[in-house]
Design a protein around this nucleic acid. Structure first.
Lengths: 110, 110
DNA sequence: AAATATACATAAATATCTTAGGTATATAGG
DNA sequence: CCTATATACCTAAGATATTTATGTATATTT
């Protein structure tokens, strides 16, 4: 997929994932999103990590670092504020999708 | 509408309008899009004109300036290349909308 | 042993958008 | 008549989000 249209929806995708899953770590999000979208949505790590940090800075996400073997994973989950915001953004996205769909299906006036 | 999600879709919207209408001038596009979307899509002129110039530079649009009274309007229409590209982008957008819609409707695993 | 996958991260470059400002003509309301 | 709003084009500065490239390190597969 030409992911130009993907722009602007990354935060909402992350919030959606964390709304469904209680907690996830960054790399896991990229893999799950790819899988769930049949490869259509390909989140670049260079976009993901700054996005997670942004959302955390806004108080929407809470983190907990855990050692898995010799490696550290940083788990993210929605804060109460993030929980509310995720629902808002999911609704707004659905509304947007409907509007854009109607628009793209418009027939010429004559 | 929070038009954050609007990002990345302006070019496609313009191409869609010109696919439906043979020819339009810039200001007309902003007004028609607003009307057709019930106010949901609000194209800023600061985004529109650079976008039109970009699309023209890519060879997707052709222009013709016409005097209307003492004022000049710049009419845009799809070039043959733009005609093809518009159909491509409309299809890609529709595919994207479907994917994103499915994604936003995913239920938690358990 | 080497290649690939996992897991985090940042910086530079690029793209697109908003905000703000500029110019000028046309029309509607008081 | 005059003033505000609408029409119609445009660009520049700043904000923001993304890609590409790079870096580090461990784990797993071939």
């Amino acid at each position: 997929m030409n992911n130009k249209m993907f722009r602007g929806s990354l935060d909402t995708i992350i919030l959606k994932m964390l709304n469904n899953n209680t907690e996830m770590y960054g790399y896991e999000i990229t893999q799950e999103v790819k899988k769930l979208s049949d490869g259509a949505f390909d989140i670049k790590e260079g976009a993901l990590y700054p996005a997670l940090h942004r959302l955390e800075a806004k108080g929407l996400l809470e983190t907990e670092s855990r050692s898995i073997g010799n490696r550290i994973r940083k788990y993210y989950k929605l804060s109460p504020k993030g929980n509310k915001e995720s629902k808002t953004q999911i609704s707004e996205m659905q509304e947007f999708l409907q509007q854009m769909n109607a628009f793209m299906n418009l027939k010429p006036a004559r």
